[in-house]
Write a protein that binds this DNA or RNA. Structure first.
Length: 676
DNA sequence: CTTAGGG
DNA sequence: CCCTAAG
């Protein structure tokens, strides 16, 4: 005989208390399912990650991860970005360019070199790569032209196959190569005087831990050049000669922290997430937009534990930072080549004599973007305008980084420039569904920055810039070929939770009125308005750490108060599952609320319990129905007493005591009952 | 990765 | 919400 205390209001909960906890194995299965769902990741996200890759130029050191071989991110493979850096920006001479391609290759093995030379111990993940790298080194350094491209491709495309032979150009890559050559993408590596850069910085830049992620493979173009080739092509740079062992070791430690081998999907998710939440985005004014889109768009892949990305972020930040430095120091990037994408329709390039270099760079950049777009459209759909937003920012970042902030990416909607501030594209209403046809991007020369021996430390978007004349309208316009695959995509309506009630149907991000500038004048467009020159000196004085931390903190997720319906769902789930199984609660009631992690749910429960205890007058925010609070108290009381005892071991019909204590309006109500 | 708690 | 120690 058992007693059951029932609340006067008929609380008969906890009947499901015997829901067994899913075994780990099953849990994993869940994840697997999720993986499938993840495949829906919209193109933009991929793009985002891709862009991230770009930013990580040269960091694509292949991971020896065996699992990498299974990766199917081929979509991105085709994307390539090639740029050249002119190390003499101020001089305005386009004469000297450093082949980014070379850089790419070099970067990959640069890491290795560093490791080998500086830290023999750090062979852990890279061991496999060494042979290849060693091999590649000579080849890369020697090839300065198109051939190099091949080599590079081999080295970089698909880190999974990195360990493959470099001598043979695989079919896949072959295409790329052909593509490239056809488009006339050729460049020479010429002596480059990026001496201003700190060798150490350079080398530090590439070994970015991020590289371990295998999602996007594209040629990165960072200026960092490995010792061998580096010295060769850049006599001025003394690389490796004066690296701080300390720094290196530190770096190595850092990189070691990253596990190269992880489930592809997980990596992907994190990779993207990481990127999105990383400083790259921080640099962008509205990270929030993205998050919102995630939650509402039903994009699951990205919402996972943010915490997990923490370390990565740090590293990434460092990397970025370093890179930034690099870019700051290096002069504008110039590149040539045509648009390799069939889908891409590029308007005629308007090259001003005034800026041949610049024009070239722009055109190239445009091609790159186009490539990005086309690369993804084929097999991915995008859910919403947020994607565009993200994409835009990504591109912006990438371009900014690559071009040293000299060129800005402008968004064109129906021929009009769109501002990229706060709500950016979101507000413009640009979405995959409609105006993609009218959507375009522009690469426009940005304010020229005086090269600095010492790099500034501001975030990418805030690079100090001189106030240069802004007649950029003549920039080349590229219409992304998004319409094909993306525009056709049907936005996935967010799935509702199991609980009958929609947990998070708040699509707060209702697209607002198109907010584009009617004025073509660049000065009107924030996207095109040069950032006010900043006092670099002053900034330089600020400790890097401080800055980093600041920006890190800025990553805080946007606050999203629980709606009543969410609370309801939470209470319901907790009543059934208890308070120690937040993961299950999450799965049960918030499966599709990607912005609610089980930690969030746990926290919310905590606050609910607290809320229920305090007087209504002390409560804030959207009032929670007393009925729910009562249930909260009841469940809390119940579960705090039963805890894990009965988890997963009760079978329906089992006798037991339930709800020993219940509170109602502060009064304990205990009604003995018998259950059977 | 999850939990459980403190901040 | 964030961050972390534990498990």
């Amino acid at each position: 005989m058992v007693f059951k205390k029932r609340l006067d209001y008929g609380f008969n909960a906890f009947s499901v208390s015997n829901v067994p906890r899913a075994p780990r194995s099953i849990r994993k299965r869940d994840r697997t399912k999720r993986v499938v769902e993840d495949s829906r990741i919209c193109a933009f996200e991929l793009l985002a990650s891709l862009a991230g890759k770009l930013l990580e130029a040269g960091e694509s050191f292949a991971s020896s991860n065996a699992s990498a071989g299974h990766d199917h991110v081929s979509v991105v493979k085709d994307v390539k970005l090639e740029t050249q850096y002119d190390d003499k920006p101020l001089k305005t001479e386009c004469v000297e360019h450093v082949s980014c391609d070379a850089s790419v290759v070099t970067s990959d093995w640069t890491t290795e070199n560093s490791d080998n030379s500086k830290e023999p111990k750090h062979s852990e993940n890279n061991a496999i790569l060494e042979p290849t790298l060693t091999k590649a080194l000579p080849a890369c350094s020697e090839k300065i032209n198109d051939d190099l491209m091949y080599t590079i491709r081999k080295c970089n495309v698909g880190y999974g196959s990195f360990t493959g032979n470099l001598d043979g150009c695989s079919p896949d890559f072959g295409d790329l190569c052909d593509d490239i050559s056809e488009n006339g993408v050729k460049r020479e590596i010429e002596a480059n005087n990026c001496l201003t850069m700190d060798p150490l910085e350079l080398s530090m830049t590439f070994p970015s831990p991020i590289n371990s992620d295998r999602d996007v493979k594209l040629l990165s173009h960072s200026d960092s050049v490995p010792n061998a080739s580096f010295s060769r092509h850049r006599n001025d740079i003394k690389l490796g000669s004066r690296d701080d062992d300390e720094k290196f070791s530190r770096f190595n430690k850092l990189s070691n922290r990253f596990k190269v081998s992880r489930p592809a999907t997980l990596i992907e998710d994190r990779r993207i997430r990481k990127f999105l939440t990383s400083k790259y985005w921080k640099a962008a004014p509205k990270l929030k937009d993205f998050e919102d889109s995630q939650a509402d768009g039903g994009i699951k892949a990205l919402h996972r534990k943010r915490k997990t990305y923490y370390n990565y972020d740090k590293c990434q930040y460092d990397t970025l930072y370093k890179r930034r430095k690099f870019f700051d120091c290096s002069s504008i990037v110039t590149s040539d080549g045509g648009i390799g994408s069939e889908n891409v329709s590029n308007s005629p390039e308007k090259v001003t004599n005034e800026n041949k270099c610049r024009s070239v760079a722009m055109s190239h950049g445009a091609c790159e973007i186009a490539s990005l777009l086309t690369g993804h459209q084929a097999s991915h759909k995008s859910d919403d305008s947020h994607g565009m937003n993200i994409f835009y920012r990504t591109v912006m970042e990438a371009v900014t980084a690559l071009l040293g902030g000299r060129i800005r990416v402008g968004v064109l909607l129906q021929g009009k420039k769109v501002r990229d501030d706060s709500r950016t594209l979101l507000q413009t209403g640009i979405s995959s569904e409609d105006n993609l046809d009218a959507l375009g991007f522009t690469l426009e020369p940005g304010p020229v920055i005086a090269p600095r021996p010492i790099c500034s430390e501001e975030p990418p978007l805030q690079l100090p810039r001189g106030s240069a004349p802004q007649n950029l309208t003549s920039s080349l316009v590229v219409t992304p070929a998004l319409d094909t695959g993306i525009s056709a995509a049907t936005p996935d309506p967010p799935l509702l939770t199991n609980s009958a009630k929609p947990v998070d149907s708040n699509y707060e991000h209702v697209l607002s009125q198109t907010d584009m500038l009617t004025d073509q004048n660049l000065s009107e467009s924030r996207a095109l308005v040069p950032v006010p020159a900043m006092n670099v000196e002053a900034l330089a004085v600020v400790p890097v750490n401080q800055k980093i931390r600041k920006s890190e903190l800025a990553q805080r997720r946007t606050r999203r108060p629980f709606s009543v319906s969410e609370v309801e769902a939470l209470v319901q789930a907790v009543e059934e599952l208890g308070t120690g199984r937040w993961r299950d609660v999450k799965l049960r009631a918030f499966e599709n609320a990607d912005h609610r992690t089980y930690v969030d749910l746990k926290d919310k429960w905590k606050t609910l319990v607290h809320t229920a205890k305090i007087s209504p007058q002390q409560r804030r925010g959207e009032p929670v129905p007393q009925e729910l609070l009562d249930r909260v108290m009841a469940a809390h009381a119940y579960w705090s007493q039963h805890q894990a005892k009965q988890q997963g071991k009760h079978h329906p019909g089992t006798l037991r005591i339930t709800e020993p204590q219940a509170y109602r309006d502060g009064v304990v109500v205990a009604i003995p009952t018998i259950t059977m």
